[in-house]
């Protein structure tokens, strides 16, 4: 069984929104039609997006940390949005686990968006159908593209490689290794949706230095300066000779 997914490294994301714009660019020009916008240059612009980057502040000044948080459909393994759809327009593909909406069947009842706890489904206000991330299903299998470009548009756009893409059911895939070894976690585990997308936490590199590491045991007189430079004919010993 394959379950394609994204793994997003919050330690690396700089919040540049490159994934948001490239997602919009790819998906508004795709075979499934445009993603509509209203008043894009007006006072109150609004539009349909598959991906958003949000920013959270953790802690209290001065001990704060900024977390940039990209958010799109998590392609849940137990997606609550799918069984509620009355038409079957929302479905999960058995072959690769991608959750999709069939725009020709959707009646725009919005029930699936109520049933997604993550708020990642957006109704297209002009086509009146529900839309959401497709994991760029129209490019990841496109054999017309060079193999390293058969990835979601957001993954290709990310300048810091904060977005990994792959099969989370294959234990040896890059995404699985990242989840396993770098503490990947799922959002809102309390609802049992089992999101396929995972997030890698912020990680700080700490070093601990002990007192005796500050005192050089091989320099008991604490004399700094050039080490003595014996003649080339003298026997050589580490820390004594300079070559």
């Amino acid at each position: 069984m394959t379950q394609l997914a994204l793994v997003i490294d919050l330690n690396v994301c700089v919040g540049c929104h490159a994934c948001v714009t490239s997602c919009k660019e790819w998906n508004t020009s795709g075979s499934a039609g445009y993603l509509s916008d209203d008043r894009p240059y007006g006072e109150d612009p609004t539009g349909c997006f598959f991906n958003r980057v949000q920013t959270f502040e953790v802690g209290e000044y001065p001990r704060t940390e900024t977390v940039h948080f990209p958010k799109s459909c998590l392609h849940c393994e137990d997606p609550p949005c799918v069984p509620v759809c009355p038409t079957g327009a929302s479905y999960k593909r058995p072959e690769d686990g991608i959750v999709l909406v069939d725009y020709d069947k959707c009646i725009g009842c919005k029930y699936c968006s109520w049933a997604c706890p993550y708020g990642v489904r957006e109704l297209d206000e002009h086509q009146k159908v529900m839309k959401k991330c497709t994991l760029c299903v129209d490019r990841i299998y496109d054999t017309g593209l060079p193999e390293d470009e058969r990835k979601p548009a957001c993954v290709l756009a990310c300048p810091t490689s904060a977005r990994l893409f792959g099969d989370v059911h294959d234990s040896d895939s890059g995404v699985s290794v990242a989840i396993r070894e770098e503490g990947g976690y799922a959002l809102m585990p309390e609802w049992g949706t089992r999101p396929a997308n995972h997030y890698l936490p912020r990680r700080k590199t700490h070093i601990s230095i002990h007192r005796d590491e500050l005192d050089r045991y091989d320099n008991p007189l604490k004399k700094e300066g050039e080490l003595p430079k014996p003649d080339i004919s003298e026997p050589s010993l580490d820390d004594v000779t300079s070559w």
Binding site: T46, F49, T55, K71, M188, P189, P201
Partner: peptide, 29 residues
């Protein structure tokens, strides 16, 4: 409520506040 900002973004800290939702005007959400 079972969900909180902590479970929503998966950060264990008692003080988390949103600084940006990612867009200025409204959206479907």
């Amino acid at each position: 409520y079972k969900s909180s900002t902590q479970t929503a973004i998966g950060v264990r800290h008692s003080i988390i506040s949103q600084r940006s939702q990612g867009f200025m005007s409204g959206s479907f959400n």
